[in-house]
Simulated scan of single mutants.
Amino acid sequence: MTPFVFNTTPSIRFGAGLLDRLDEVAAATLGPRVMVVTDAGIVRCGMAARACAALERAGVATAVFAEVMADPTEALVLAAEAATRSFGATGVLGLGGGSSLDVAKLCAALATGGSDLRASYGVGNLRGGRLPLVLVPTTAGTGSEATPISIVTTGGQEKSGVVSPVLLPDIAVLDPDLTLGLPAPVTAATGIDAMVHAIEAYCSASPNNNPVSRALALEALRLMGAALETAVHEPANIQARSDMLLGSLLAGQAFANSPVAAVHALAYPIGGMFKVPHGLSNALVLPHVIRFNAATHPEAYARIAPILFEGMDSLAPDAAFVFADALAALSHRCGLPQRLRDVGIGQDALAAMAADAMKQTRLLVNNPRALTLDDALGIYQAAW
């Protein structure tokens, strides 16, 4: 066994109703003044008020930064940092989807004054410590509550990542009740996003691909394979919602240590240039990337195929390609668009997208098969 490193969130709390028990779960960690980082939708549905009320029962003063939007920009991150400093926060609570959690992570780190955002992009460049940090996901997809990664939109369209163990929160609070109101398209897209995390973590060419990450990825796929369609079509099914939320966490733990690859690299330009939600961006290219990789590296995909799709034959010569087709069919059954043209992307944009994807060297190095510019363009053409 080769040496490896595995880091994860030190404390994970899972259970229905935990949002209303933040006074018990999180107040002591966050301190007397807490900035809640979230979005306007979470405020409108009352979740932010519930979080504040729970903390205030423990004598904690709260403020809410609710300006987070999908694909957060540098300006938005810096605005959240400024609000946190102005409030004199002793801790940060991230509440919402992946964008809110990513902003909360950076806010907690930057507010201490020890780091500069633009100098922090890349792996291991974030300096200094952070404020105490608790993350509460309201979608079952990004796994951000268990990853040392925050993604920021830079230069208008391009996405850059800050990767550092400093960004792992002190506590992840998983309350499946918070996901009950997710619309079917969001449930489907975020669910397939989580599946991508597990698939790419298991098949990653990273030298830190390790037994712990692979075991977590397999359990994540087992849970989500049985639950995703139920969660999409029966939105009030709490068991399916719980399995999806736990599966998303496990997938996040897996890819936090065995990093993702070309699916994400090719998804980023779709989101950055055309504002397509991240989970849907992944779903649009997923089967095409797997077919590309399976031409030279089919074994890992064949092994995981029956975990996600019961009854699939992992020993069949074309198992990896059948797996790719099954993922495309799953996406279709969940009601997601199937082609790049279906989300308004013109064929004339594919070359620029391919060039942008090739800038994601942090991710492409983990792909099982080396990817050239022509390969990236070919995958986009197949997806178009």
Rank of each mutant, 00 (worst) to 15 (best):
P148C: 10
A251D: 11
A61W: 07
A51M: 02
S144P: 02
L280Y: 04
M1V: 11
T138C: 04
A188Y: 04
A328I: 01
L280Q: 04
I290K: 04
V285E: 03
A352E: 13
L336T: 09
A217Y: 00
L18S: 14
A49G: 15
L174S: 04
A70V: 00
L284N: 11
T112A: 05
L371E: 01
L22S: 09
L101V: 00
V43P: 03
L133R: 03
L373D: 11
A28G: 14
V343T: 08
L131W: 02
L126I: 08
G91E: 03
W384Q: 09
T179A: 13
A58E: 09
G114I: 01
H288Y: 15
I238A: 13
A48W: 02
L95K: 05
P165A: 04
A328M: 03
T139G: 00
V263F: 02
G141A: 08
V365W: 02
V103D: 00
A194I: 13
D348M: 06
D374N: 12
V64Y: 06
A189E: 04
A357M: 08
G272R: 10
A226H: 14
P207S: 11
V276L: 01
V136L: 14
P176W: 11
D325E: 15
A262M: 15
G113Y: 07
I307Q: 06
V260S: 12
R303E: 15
A80P: 06
S213E: 08
L363E: 05
C334N: 13
M195Q: 14
A231S: 14
A294S: 14
Y380W: 06
H233I: 00
E219G: 00
V5M: 10
Y202S: 08
H264L: 07
V60E: 12
A119I: 00
G252P: 07
A194N: 10
S314N: 06
G191V: 05
A220E: 12
L266I: 03
A70E: 14
N282M: 08
G128V: 07
T187C: 12
I290S: 01
G124E: 09
N208C: 11
G124M: 12
A220P: 11
F292T: 02
L182D: 00
L168M: 10
V5G: 00
L336F: 01
A16F: 08
G161C: 11
G247E: 04
A254S: 13
L95Y: 08
N293W: 04
H197P: 00
F4E: 05
P132S: 11
A267F: 08
